[in-house]
Design a protein around this nucleic acid. Structure first.
Lengths: 336, 336
DNA sequence: TTGAAAGCGCTAACAG
DNA sequence: CTGTTAGCGCTTTCAA
């Protein structure tokens, strides 16, 4: 691995000139031929700047971490792609982290930043990461942007227009003629879950309807949990004819539970989910969803983080463009 | 962020003593009280060793990259967990990389190692990464271990017992009474796909049967592609009564295609897939699979890589323990 | 237009 | 048992 001084020697210049040329330092004025000699030497020796040397000198690593509860969730494919593209454009390296158990996870995170391996984080909170734990992280000098989650003390976040998404899902059901629409939502503690419920409520209200507590469950997004919620709602004496499920993975679980309990979809009950992923086309029936622009969340979160590293103030963004889009498949139909 | 010299000053010792105590250098012999003073100072100042300084000095980063075609594939959850556990145990940081387009991807990889950001890679080849491209990577000083893929010039790999897995899947079908068993396999260029086909052939042979080319497709693991293969096989004049699908994601696609063409599973045809993932329990019918120990692949790959970094010779491992295990769900039944 | 030199934080060889 | 010191590769101020 060639070093800078080898390049300099080969080009017959000092290391400082070599450094400035290779970094495209705009304030430097070198003779074109000197410049060319340096460039040529770098090419000849296939030079890459040593990362540790640079990081040590500059006291920043030019690396960012994207930390999500479970990177193998297909939903994150888009988020990752967006974050990755943005990082690349800004010449940052993106590391993907994971934190099954967040209490332990946060320590890994803390280390990552304290040791200087990364300059900042894009983090998706899990519902069990308390505001306090988050504050501790931030207090620890961590530059951080939250995605698909927020904290009361706003300090950088990018979320989707969950209200619009849930509203669109609900309106779709309403337009099909449903009047008894239930909600399988996220946990109450979640800001995002509350926003989705709000969209649901707004759509109902605009149709002259009201939320009915017996048709609402707030247990979370895990497939098994949503499955339980679906079974429970449908066993109500007079249950809904349609269900908004606040997350596509939950909806997949719900579909299975409904079938197992002999409830036909969409014959007996229609189901629409928020968020889209490839599996939704392979459930039975294929699942109608509201696709949200997760790519853009990843992209903008990284840009925001980099801006903040450069001194910009923390900002809280709601990505409303492109807007949520209905992906019509076969799990919704007019009421029986 | 406290530095080593701050710790040393606070403890009233030199940096070298502080360094050695903090690193648990076994050759150092310090007075217990000196030692304790250093430890206390580190606690007081909440010290973490700066990563760049250490990496520069030691010329290694103590970081590893796990690079897979698409980290959001649920199949990789186990692989990641295993790799992550092994890294943690050895005090390495694990970075997850991704490479949608490998030709570009390999450049990212090259940079990662050339810049010294990571000491080595655990890499899953995509089928379109040529042996030559791989050699280039390795030639570039990259310490690398392949997972779920290999290269003719063996230089470190960990794979599953694909032969046993495919054999188990096929035998399950055979034991149900099927005599006409087809295969939806991977692409021919893939070593792993060949091994799975071999398991299939061995099981057939042991039952006195022979592979029949009209019942075999070798198009790859993508859901759409396997879907096409399924439709095509079942439209053969006298088609099989059972199908081994060499990958669970492909099987999910196949199930959808079969249903769309009016083929009943398992009524008309049984389906068993290799590998397991949560979604398999949520297809219709729930998919019978052969679960393979992907966790162990991740775990052993990282250990192997770390051993190699320490000078051990490259090794090629087949993980046969725990053995493949049949997960019986509802997509298989006796032939019609 | 170019070069010399300091120093980022750390480890380890060597000296006391 | 502990301290001094060189130097990893890089950027940048300052001087020429």
């Amino acid at each position: 691995m060639a070093t800078l001084s080898e390049i300099a020697a080969r080009a017959g210049v000092s290391v400082s000139v070599a450094s400035r040329v290779l970094n495209g330092d705009p304030t430097v004025r070198t003779r074109p031929e000197t410049r060319e000699r340096v460039l040529q030497a770098a090419r000849d020796l296939d030079y890459s700047a040593n990362y540790a040397g640079r990081a040590l000198r500059l006291a920043r690593s030019k690396a960012l971490a994207l930390v999500v509860p479970n990177p193998s969730n297909p939903l994150f494919a888009d988020l990752l792609a967006g974050a990755s593209d943005a990082s690349g454009e800004c010449d940052y390296t993106l590391l993907v982290g994971h934190s099954q158990h967040f209490t332990e996870g946060s320590d890994v995170i803390r280390r990552l930043v304290r040791e200087g391996r990364v300059d900042g984080f894009v983090l998706q909170r899990t519902d069990d990461l308390t505001d306090q734990a988050l504050e501790n992280l931030v207090a620890n000098d961590a530059r951080i942007v939250l995605v698909a989650s927020r904290t009361p003390r706003r300090r950088g976040s990018v979320i989707l227009d969950d209200v619009a998404g849930a509203r669109l899902a609900t309106e779709h059901l309403l337009s099909l003629g449903h009047r008894r629409v239930g909600l399988i939502g996220g946990v109450e503690a979640s800001d995002i879950a509350r926003r989705r419920e709000q969209g649901y409520v707004v759509a109902l209200r605009d149709a002259g309807l009201r939320r009915r507590e017996t048709w609402v469950r707030r247990l979370g997004y895990a497939p098994e949990v949503a499955a339980e919620a679906a079974t429970s709602i449908m066993s109500e004496p007079s249950g809904p004819t349609a269900l908004v499920v606040a997350n596509v993975n939950g909806a997949i679980g719900a579909l299975t539970a409904l079938r197992q309990t002999g409830v036909e979809v969409p014959g007996d009950v229609s189901v629409v989910a928020i968020h889209d992923q490839w599996m939704a086309a392979h459930t039975w029936p294929p699942l109608t969803t509201v696709k949200m622009a997760f790519y853009d969340v990843g992209y903008r979160a990284v840009r925001l983080l980099i801006d903040q590293l450069a001194g910009a103030p923390a900002d809280d963004i709601v990505v409303g463009d492109p807007p949520p889009r209905l992906v019509l498949r076969a799990s919704t139909a007019p009421p029986p």
